[in-house]
Write a protein that binds this DNA or RNA. Structure first.
Lengths: 140, 140
DNA sequence: CGTACATCCTCTAGCGGCTAGAGGAGCAAG
DNA sequence: CTTGCTCCTCTAGCCGCTAGAGGATGTACG
Protein backbone atom coordinates (compact mmCIF):
# COMPACT_ATOMS: atom_id res chain seq x y z
CA UNK A 1 0.00 0.00 0.00
CA UNK A 2 2.04 2.85 -1.25
CA UNK A 3 -1.11 4.94 -1.57
CA UNK A 4 -0.15 7.16 1.35
CA UNK A 5 -0.53 10.78 0.35
CA UNK A 6 0.27 14.06 2.09
CA UNK A 7 -2.37 16.65 2.92
CA UNK A 8 -1.72 18.76 -0.16
CA UNK A 9 -2.47 15.90 -2.51
CA UNK A 10 -5.56 14.98 -0.52
CA UNK A 11 -6.62 18.58 -0.90
CA UNK A 12 -6.21 18.45 -4.69
CA UNK A 13 -7.98 15.14 -5.04
CA UNK A 14 -11.01 16.30 -3.08
CA UNK A 15 -11.16 20.02 -3.72
CA UNK A 16 -11.06 20.74 0.00
CA UNK A 17 -8.50 23.31 1.11
CA UNK A 18 -5.66 22.22 3.35
CA UNK A 19 -6.63 24.33 6.38
CA UNK A 20 -10.18 23.09 6.01
CA UNK A 21 -9.02 19.48 6.15
CA UNK A 22 -7.17 20.25 9.36
CA UNK A 23 -10.27 21.99 10.64
CA UNK A 24 -12.38 18.91 9.89
CA UNK A 25 -9.88 16.84 11.82
CA UNK A 26 -10.14 19.24 14.75
CA UNK A 27 -13.93 19.01 14.87
CA UNK A 28 -13.89 15.25 14.52
CA UNK A 29 -15.17 14.82 10.97
CA UNK A 30 -11.89 13.37 9.80
CA UNK A 31 -9.94 10.93 11.99
CA UNK A 32 -6.41 11.73 12.99
CA UNK A 33 -4.22 10.31 10.25
CA UNK A 34 -0.89 8.59 10.66
CA UNK A 35 2.23 10.73 10.47
CA UNK A 36 5.65 10.57 8.92
CA UNK A 37 8.72 10.72 11.16
CA UNK A 38 8.75 14.42 10.49
CA UNK A 39 5.23 14.73 11.87
CA UNK A 40 3.49 15.22 8.54
CA UNK A 41 0.02 13.82 7.97
CA UNK A 42 -0.28 10.78 5.71
CA UNK A 43 -3.60 9.74 4.28
CA UNK A 44 -4.86 6.58 2.63
CA UNK A 45 -7.62 6.00 0.10
CA UNK A 46 -10.41 5.90 2.74
CA UNK A 47 -9.55 9.47 3.66
CA UNK A 48 -10.18 10.54 0.07
CA UNK A 49 -13.60 8.90 0.09
CA UNK A 50 -14.55 10.26 3.45
CA UNK A 51 -13.48 13.77 2.60
CA UNK A 52 -15.39 13.67 -0.68
CA UNK A 53 -18.45 12.56 1.22
CA UNK A 54 -18.02 15.51 3.56
CA UNK A 55 -17.58 17.92 0.69
CA UNK A 56 -20.68 16.69 -1.10
CA UNK A 57 -22.71 16.96 2.06
CA UNK A 58 -21.42 20.47 2.71
CA UNK A 59 -22.26 21.46 -0.83
CA UNK A 60 -25.79 20.30 -0.15
CA UNK A 61 -25.81 22.51 2.91
CA UNK A 62 -25.72 19.85 5.62
CA UNK A 63 -24.31 21.11 8.88
CA UNK A 64 -21.16 19.63 10.32
CA UNK A 65 -23.13 18.00 13.08
CA UNK A 66 -25.50 16.31 10.62
CA UNK A 67 -22.54 15.13 8.56
CA UNK A 68 -21.01 13.55 11.64
CA UNK A 69 -24.21 11.60 12.11
CA UNK A 70 -24.38 10.62 8.45
CA UNK A 71 -20.79 9.39 8.54
CA UNK A 72 -21.48 7.35 11.64
CA UNK A 73 -24.52 5.82 9.96
CA UNK A 74 -22.67 5.03 6.76
CA UNK A 75 -20.31 2.91 8.83
CA UNK A 76 -23.18 0.58 9.68
CA UNK A 77 -24.40 -0.67 6.30
CA UNK A 78 -26.66 -3.34 7.76
CA UNK A 79 -28.86 -0.95 9.66
CA UNK A 80 -32.04 0.59 8.35
CA UNK A 81 -31.54 3.88 6.65
CA UNK A 82 -34.48 5.51 8.38
CA UNK A 83 -32.18 7.64 10.47
CA UNK A 84 -30.40 8.81 7.34
CA UNK A 85 -33.72 9.67 5.79
CA UNK A 86 -34.76 11.60 8.86
CA UNK A 87 -31.62 13.72 8.78
CA UNK A 88 -32.07 14.48 5.11
CA UNK A 89 -35.76 15.25 5.56
CA UNK A 90 -35.00 17.57 8.42
CA UNK A 91 -32.44 19.32 6.29
CA UNK A 92 -34.90 19.63 3.44
CA UNK A 93 -37.45 21.29 5.68
CA UNK A 94 -34.75 23.66 6.94
CA UNK A 95 -33.93 24.62 3.38
CA UNK A 96 -37.59 25.16 2.62
CA UNK A 97 -38.18 27.40 5.57
CA UNK A 98 -35.14 29.45 4.68
CA UNK A 99 -36.50 29.81 1.17
CA UNK A 100 -39.87 30.88 2.51
CA UNK A 101 -38.26 33.48 4.73
CA UNK A 102 -36.15 34.83 1.90
CA UNK A 103 -39.15 35.00 -0.38
CA UNK A 104 -41.00 37.07 2.16
CA UNK A 105 -38.02 39.40 2.29
CA UNK A 106 -37.87 39.49 -1.47
CA UNK A 107 -41.51 40.56 -1.68
CA UNK A 108 -41.09 43.28 0.89
CA UNK A 109 -37.92 44.75 -0.55
CA UNK A 110 -39.37 44.55 -4.02
CA UNK A 111 -42.52 46.37 -2.98
CA UNK A 112 -40.48 49.03 -1.25
CA UNK A 113 -38.46 49.60 -4.40
CA UNK A 114 -41.48 49.57 -6.67
CA UNK A 115 -43.10 52.34 -4.68
CA UNK A 116 -40.12 54.62 -4.80
CA UNK A 117 -40.42 57.31 -7.45
CA UNK A 118 -36.73 57.94 -6.99
CA UNK A 119 -36.81 61.64 -6.28
CA UNK A 120 -35.37 63.17 -3.14
CA UNK A 121 -34.52 61.18 -0.08
CA UNK A 122 -37.12 63.11 1.89
CA UNK A 123 -39.79 61.49 -0.28
CA UNK A 124 -38.05 58.15 -0.64
CA UNK A 125 -40.29 55.20 0.03
CA UNK A 126 -37.37 53.01 0.92
CA UNK A 127 -36.28 55.27 3.73
CA UNK A 128 -39.89 55.82 4.69
CA UNK A 129 -40.67 52.15 4.99
CA UNK A 130 -37.59 51.52 7.05
CA UNK A 131 -38.47 54.43 9.30
CA UNK A 132 -42.05 53.44 9.93
CA UNK A 133 -42.73 49.96 8.62
CA UNK A 134 -46.51 50.02 8.68
CA UNK A 135 -46.93 46.46 7.56
CA UNK A 136 -45.10 43.68 9.28
CA UNK A 137 -45.27 40.08 8.21
CA UNK A 138 -43.93 37.59 10.69
CA UNK A 139 -43.74 34.15 9.23
CA UNK A 140 -44.34 31.50 11.83
CA UNK B 1 -37.15 67.44 27.48
CA UNK B 2 -37.79 64.89 30.12
CA UNK B 3 -37.91 62.22 27.43
CA UNK B 4 -34.57 60.78 28.48
CA UNK B 5 -34.87 57.04 28.85
CA UNK B 6 -32.49 54.30 30.01
CA UNK B 7 -31.38 51.46 27.81
CA UNK B 8 -33.92 48.98 29.14
CA UNK B 9 -36.83 51.20 28.14
CA UNK B 10 -35.28 51.85 24.76
CA UNK B 11 -35.03 48.10 24.39
CA UNK B 12 -38.72 47.62 25.17
CA UNK B 13 -39.85 50.44 22.90
CA UNK B 14 -37.94 49.07 19.93
CA UNK B 15 -37.83 45.34 20.50
CA UNK B 16 -34.05 45.32 20.33
CA UNK B 17 -32.29 43.53 23.16
CA UNK B 18 -30.10 45.53 25.51
CA UNK B 19 -26.80 43.83 24.61
CA UNK B 20 -27.65 44.28 20.94
CA UNK B 21 -28.13 48.01 21.44
CA UNK B 22 -24.71 48.20 23.04
CA UNK B 23 -23.34 46.13 20.18
CA UNK B 24 -24.83 48.58 17.65
CA UNK B 25 -23.15 51.38 19.54
CA UNK B 26 -19.85 49.54 19.36
CA UNK B 27 -20.07 49.07 15.60
CA UNK B 28 -21.13 52.66 15.03
CA UNK B 29 -24.78 52.20 14.07
CA UNK B 30 -25.96 54.00 17.18
CA UNK B 31 -24.14 57.10 18.41
CA UNK B 32 -22.74 57.18 21.93
CA UNK B 33 -25.55 58.48 24.12
CA UNK B 34 -25.22 60.86 27.03
CA UNK B 35 -24.79 59.36 30.47
CA UNK B 36 -26.10 59.89 33.96
CA UNK B 37 -23.66 60.72 36.77
CA UNK B 38 -23.66 57.01 37.51
CA UNK B 39 -22.46 56.31 33.97
CA UNK B 40 -25.75 54.92 32.70
CA UNK B 41 -26.80 55.51 29.12
CA UNK B 42 -29.61 58.00 28.54
CA UNK B 43 -31.45 58.12 25.24
CA UNK B 44 -33.77 60.66 23.64
CA UNK B 45 -36.56 60.25 21.11
CA UNK B 46 -34.20 60.26 18.09
CA UNK B 47 -32.55 57.15 19.45
CA UNK B 48 -35.89 55.36 19.41
CA UNK B 49 -36.45 56.31 15.76
CA UNK B 50 -32.96 55.39 14.71
CA UNK B 51 -33.04 52.05 16.46
CA UNK B 52 -36.41 51.21 14.94
CA UNK B 53 -35.00 52.03 11.54
CA UNK B 54 -32.11 49.68 12.21
CA UNK B 55 -34.40 46.93 13.38
CA UNK B 56 -36.63 47.20 10.33
CA UNK B 57 -33.64 47.12 8.04
CA UNK B 58 -32.21 44.08 9.85
CA UNK B 59 -35.56 42.34 9.60
CA UNK B 60 -35.38 42.89 5.88
CA UNK B 61 -31.95 41.31 5.90
CA UNK B 62 -29.83 44.38 5.22
CA UNK B 63 -26.28 44.01 6.46
CA UNK B 64 -24.94 46.31 9.12
CA UNK B 65 -22.72 48.00 6.60
CA UNK B 66 -25.63 48.73 4.26
CA UNK B 67 -27.64 50.08 7.17
CA UNK B 68 -24.83 52.44 8.06
CA UNK B 69 -25.00 53.80 4.52
CA UNK B 70 -28.79 54.05 4.59
CA UNK B 71 -28.67 55.93 7.87
CA UNK B 72 -26.09 58.35 6.49
CA UNK B 73 -28.25 58.91 3.43
CA UNK B 74 -31.41 59.45 5.44
CA UNK B 75 -29.64 62.35 7.12
CA UNK B 76 -29.48 64.18 3.79
CA UNK B 77 -33.12 64.54 2.78
CA UNK B 78 -32.39 66.94 -0.08
CA UNK B 79 -30.23 64.55 -2.00
CA UNK B 80 -31.43 62.20 -4.68
CA UNK B 81 -32.43 58.82 -3.42
CA UNK B 82 -30.65 57.01 -6.20
CA UNK B 83 -27.99 55.77 -3.80
CA UNK B 84 -30.70 54.44 -1.50
CA UNK B 85 -32.28 52.67 -4.42
CA UNK B 86 -28.98 51.17 -5.45
CA UNK B 87 -28.42 49.72 -1.99
CA UNK B 88 -31.89 48.23 -1.89
CA UNK B 89 -31.58 46.86 -5.40
CA UNK B 90 -28.27 45.28 -4.57
CA UNK B 91 -29.81 43.72 -1.52
CA UNK B 92 -32.70 42.42 -3.56
CA UNK B 93 -30.39 40.72 -6.00
CA UNK B 94 -28.49 39.19 -3.10
CA UNK B 95 -31.72 37.79 -1.72
CA UNK B 96 -32.62 36.41 -5.09
CA UNK B 97 -29.34 34.67 -5.62
CA UNK B 98 -29.59 33.14 -2.17
CA UNK B 99 -33.05 31.89 -3.05
CA UNK B 100 -31.77 30.42 -6.30
CA UNK B 101 -28.97 28.65 -4.51
CA UNK B 102 -31.32 27.25 -1.88
CA UNK B 103 -33.75 26.06 -4.53
CA UNK B 104 -30.99 24.17 -6.26
CA UNK B 105 -30.17 22.54 -2.94
CA UNK B 106 -33.84 21.81 -2.35
CA UNK B 107 -34.12 20.02 -5.69
CA UNK B 108 -31.03 17.92 -5.09
CA UNK B 109 -31.90 16.88 -1.57
CA UNK B 110 -35.44 16.17 -2.62
CA UNK B 111 -34.31 13.98 -5.49
CA UNK B 112 -31.93 12.13 -3.21
CA UNK B 113 -34.75 11.44 -0.80
CA UNK B 114 -37.20 10.46 -3.50
CA UNK B 115 -34.83 7.82 -4.80
CA UNK B 116 -34.28 6.19 -1.45
CA UNK B 117 -36.34 3.05 -0.96
CA UNK B 118 -35.50 3.28 2.71
CA UNK B 119 -34.09 -0.19 3.17
CA UNK B 120 -30.62 -0.84 4.51
CA UNK B 121 -27.95 1.79 4.66
CA UNK B 122 -25.85 -0.23 2.25
CA UNK B 123 -28.49 0.43 -0.42
CA UNK B 124 -29.38 3.92 0.72
CA UNK B 125 -29.47 6.44 -2.08
CA UNK B 126 -28.79 9.31 0.28
CA UNK B 127 -25.52 7.81 1.44
CA UNK B 128 -24.75 6.74 -2.10
CA UNK B 129 -25.23 10.18 -3.57
CA UNK B 130 -23.11 11.76 -0.88
CA UNK B 131 -20.41 9.18 -1.47
CA UNK B 132 -20.25 9.52 -5.22
CA UNK B 133 -22.27 12.50 -6.36
CA UNK B 134 -22.50 11.74 -10.05
CA UNK B 135 -24.34 14.85 -10.97
CA UNK B 136 -23.05 18.20 -9.89
CA UNK B 137 -24.88 21.43 -10.56
CA UNK B 138 -22.90 24.54 -9.92
CA UNK B 139 -25.04 27.62 -10.19
CA UNK B 140 -22.63 30.39 -10.96
C1' DC C 1 27.11 21.17 -1.18
C1' DG C 2 24.34 25.23 -0.79
C1' DT C 3 20.27 27.68 -1.67
C1' DA C 4 15.84 28.75 -3.19
C1' DC C 5 11.19 27.65 -2.95
C1' DA C 6 7.30 24.64 -1.92
C1' DT C 7 5.01 22.21 1.46
C1' DC C 8 4.16 21.15 5.78
C1' DC C 9 3.59 22.03 11.00
C1' DT C 10 1.13 24.54 15.16
C1' DC C 11 -1.09 28.31 17.03
C1' DT C 12 -3.85 32.42 17.17
C1' DA C 13 -7.13 35.69 15.48
C1' DG C 14 -10.74 37.27 12.46
C1' DC C 15 -15.26 37.23 9.74
C1' DG C 16 -20.91 38.68 10.94
C1' DG C 17 -24.18 39.57 14.09
C1' DC C 18 -25.04 38.84 17.79
C1' DT C 19 -25.69 36.16 22.66
C1' DA C 20 -24.30 34.59 27.25
C1' DG C 21 -22.05 35.06 31.35
C1' DA C 22 -18.84 36.90 34.98
C1' DG C 23 -18.34 40.17 38.38
C1' DG C 24 -19.53 44.44 40.10
C1' DA C 25 -22.14 49.12 41.00
C1' DG C 26 -26.43 51.61 41.70
C1' DC C 27 -31.28 52.35 42.70
C1' DA C 28 -36.22 51.76 44.29
C1' DA C 29 -39.40 49.47 47.30
C1' DG C 30 -40.68 47.08 51.47
C1' DC D 1 -31.18 47.40 55.39
C1' DT D 2 -31.81 44.09 52.44
C1' DT D 3 -33.82 42.14 48.35
C1' DG D 4 -34.05 42.24 43.63
C1' DC D 5 -33.87 44.68 39.56
C1' DT D 6 -31.34 47.34 36.18
C1' DC D 7 -27.28 48.82 34.68
C1' DC D 8 -22.04 48.80 33.77
C1' DT D 9 -17.66 46.60 31.39
C1' DC D 10 -15.24 42.85 29.69
C1' DT D 11 -14.52 38.37 27.74
C1' DA D 12 -15.77 34.32 25.28
C1' DG D 13 -18.70 31.59 22.38
C1' DC D 14 -21.61 30.44 18.20
C1' DC D 15 -20.70 28.50 12.81
C1' DG D 16 -17.54 27.09 9.24
C1' DC D 17 -14.15 28.30 7.89
C1' DT D 18 -9.94 31.59 6.33
C1' DA D 19 -5.65 34.15 6.94
C1' DG D 20 -1.43 34.85 8.85
C1' DA D 21 2.73 34.33 11.96
C1' DG D 22 6.71 31.85 12.66
C1' DG D 23 9.10 27.73 12.12
C1' DA D 24 10.59 22.89 10.33
C1' DT D 25 11.18 19.92 6.48
C1' DG D 26 11.39 18.36 1.59
C1' DT D 27 12.73 18.75 -3.27
C1' DA D 28 15.02 20.58 -7.39
C1' DC D 29 18.69 22.79 -9.43
C1' DG D 30 23.35 24.82 -10.07
Amino acid sequence: MSDAIPIGVLSQKTGVKVPTIRYYEGVGLMPEPSRTEANRRLYGAEAVDRLRFIRHARELGFEVDAIRQLLDLSDEPEKSCKAVDAIARHHLSEIRSRIARLRALEREVQRMLAECACGRISECRVIDVLSHKHYIHHDK
